[in-house]
Computed example of a mutant assay.
Amino acid sequence: MSRLEVEVAFALPDRQRIVSLAVPEGTTARQAVALAGLEQHFPECPPATFAEADLGIFGRRLRDPAGQRLRAGDRVEVYRPLEIDPKAARAARAAREKR
């Protein structure tokens, strides 16, 4: 079985990590994240951060990461949950600017 070269990326506000992997053909985005072992690089994050996170490939969110088969050269991105809703942040900024 041939192998594909892919990357898995995760970032916190203060640092990031990109893990390069050679995975078998047919590997899904979710499987690649599990194989990347990100929990070893980010022990402060609970394991669910990686197991349940939204995923994307080159900035495009995946609808079905468990079913999305990877292609050679793909970079799987693990997205962190938003800390604040963007609409709420804009409303708060607007309220501060009115003062």
Rank of each mutant, 00 (worst) to 15 (best):
M1G: 13
M1Q: 13
M1C: 09
S2Y: 14
R3L: 13
R3K: 11
R3D: 09
L4V: 07
L4D: 08
E5C: 11
V6I: 14
V6P: 06
V6D: 12
E7R: 12
E7L: 02
A9K: 03
F10T: 03
F10S: 03
F10E: 05
A11Q: 06
A11V: 05
L12M: 13
L12F: 02
P13L: 10
D14P: 01
D14E: 15
R15L: 04
Q16W: 15
Q16L: 15
Q16C: 10
R17E: 14
R17I: 01
R17P: 00
V19H: 09
V19T: 12
S20H: 15
L21Y: 09
A22S: 15
A22W: 12
A22F: 10
V23Q: 15
G26V: 11
G26M: 12
T27D: 13
T27L: 11
A29F: 07
A29I: 01
Q31A: 04
Q31N: 01
Q31F: 02
A32S: 03
V33C: 01
V33G: 01
L35F: 11
L35K: 10
L35A: 14
L35D: 09
L38R: 04
E39P: 00
E39N: 05
Q40C: 00
H41V: 01
F42S: 11
F42C: 07
F42V: 09
F42I: 08
P43H: 08
P43L: 06
P43I: 08
P46N: 10
P46S: 10
P46D: 14
P47V: 07
P47H: 07
A48F: 00
A48R: 06
T49G: 00
F50I: 00
F50E: 01
F50H: 01
A51L: 00
A53Q: 04
D54F: 00
L55N: 03
L55F: 07
L55E: 02
F58L: 01
F58G: 00
G59H: 10
R60W: 04
L62M: 04
L62Y: 02
L62C: 02
L62Q: 03
R63S: 06
R63T: 05
A66Y: 10
G67K: 01
G67A: 09
L70T: 10
L70A: 12
L70M: 09
A72H: 13
A72S: 12
A72G: 12
A72I: 05
D74H: 07
D74A: 04
D74G: 05
V76Q: 05
V76D: 06
V76Y: 09
V76F: 07
V76N: 05
E77L: 08
Y79S: 04
R80I: 02
R80E: 05
P81G: 06
P81L: 06
L82P: 00
I84R: 15
D85I: 02
D85R: 10
P86N: 07
K87W: 09
A88N: 07
A88K: 13
A88I: 12
A88W: 13
A89T: 09
A89Y: 15
A89F: 15
R90G: 03
R90N: 03
R90A: 03
R90M: 04
A91V: 13
A92S: 08
R93Y: 15
A94W: 14
A95C: 08
A95H: 14
A95S: 12
A95K: 15
R96N: 10
K98P: 11
K98S: 12
R99N: 13
